[in-house]
């Protein structure tokens, strides 16, 4: 178990991505079988790696570090990809999901692998650990929703472009209808926003519960990661409000706005995590 590294599942997912895109050129079940085979192999290695790190840190994977948090998000994405592919093999979901998985796994190499001080510190801080668990879980679910919205928006735009340009898909491949993608996209945004909001609120609670002589409330509020996340959250507030208030919004507009809003959120949050972990900015999240 100790010998399983990030490289093991990164290589597996890379090969899976390669074979998934090969479906555009080569017909036949072999490309799909190889995609699934390498993805499953990667998932096994991925699971072993997370469990191993969790065991060593004596913390759940979500709390172990930002590195683990990224990897848990990627792990959930892979699991969902496999499940949905088993439901409908004609949808080339891997072309949309696997590049995001690769980005998450690669990004995990640039963030901190050490747990936050107040989580790994005094075991008597049960409340802080509880808030941390809630904060991380809600953010993972919320970010999962945001990434789902992002993927659905891209799928919508690809499908829309195909239909407008009267192109046919390769034999054996299909994409969900615009109506379905649009509906799923709406739900992904509408469900992920409250989850992210609750996750951020839990983060504030964690800041208060985890206060130590070295960490004051003002320091929590002045944390660049908190400020940056807050700004992107406000962007999401605007988008969410528009989505809920507008009657029958144009589906392509929804997809484009999802792409911009969710893309901004993802880039901000992940970018800040990377910057904080590399001491580019001073943060409690480093």
């Amino acid at each position: 178990m100790e010998r399983v590294s990030v490289f093991c599942f990164l290589a597996s997912y890379s090969l899976a991505t390669l074979f998934e895109f090969a479906r555009l050129r080569f017909r036949g079940g072999w490309t799909r079988a190889l995609t699934l085979g390498w993805t499953i192999a990667g998932l096994v290695a991925h699971t072993v790696y997370l469990l191993s790190r969790s065991g060593r840190a004596e913390l759940p994977p979500l709390l172990a570090s930002s590195h683990d948090w990224f990897l848990v998000l990627a792990w959930i994405a892979v699991l969902l990809f496999l499940f949905l592919t088993l439901l409908d093999a004609t949808i080339p979901l891997g072309m949309f999901v696997l590049p995001i998985v690769l980005t998450l796994v690669i990004s995990s190499q640039f963030v901190s692998t050490a747990p936050l001080d107040f989580i790994k510190g005094d075991p008597s801080q049960v409340a802080a650990r509880g808030w941390a668990m809630l904060h991380s879980s809600l953010l993972v679910i919320g970010m999962g929703g945001v990434l789902t919205g992002l993927i659905l928006a891209v799928m919508y735009l690809v499908q829309h472009r195909r239909l407008k340009q009267r192109q046919t898909l390769e034999q054996g491949l299909s994409l969900p209808s615009l109506a379905r993608l649009s509906s799923w996209n709406w739900w992904a945004v509408v469900l992920s926003f409250p989850t992210l909001t609750l996750g951020m609120a839990a983060g504030f609670m964690l800041g208060f519960a985890g206060r130590t002589p070295n960490v004051s409330t003002s320091m929590v509020l002045a944390d660049p990661v908190v400020i940056g996340s807050g700004i992107s959250w406000f962007v999401m507030v605007g988008f969410f409000g528009w989505l809920v208030a507008t009657q029958r919004p144009a589906a392509k507009q929804v997809a484009l706005l999802t792409l911009w809003a969710c893309g901004f959120l993802v880039l901000t949050i992940f970018g800040l995590q990377v910057a904080a972990s590399n001491s580019a900015i001073g943060s409690l999240h480093s």
């Binding site: 239909l163 969900p176 209808s177 615009l178 109506a179 379905r180 509906s183």
Partner: peptide, 10 residues
């Protein structure tokens, strides 16, 4: 089959 069902679900 090719286009209509890619626009509408039902």
């Amino acid at each position: 089959g090719e286009f209509g069902k890619s626009i509408f679900d039902r």
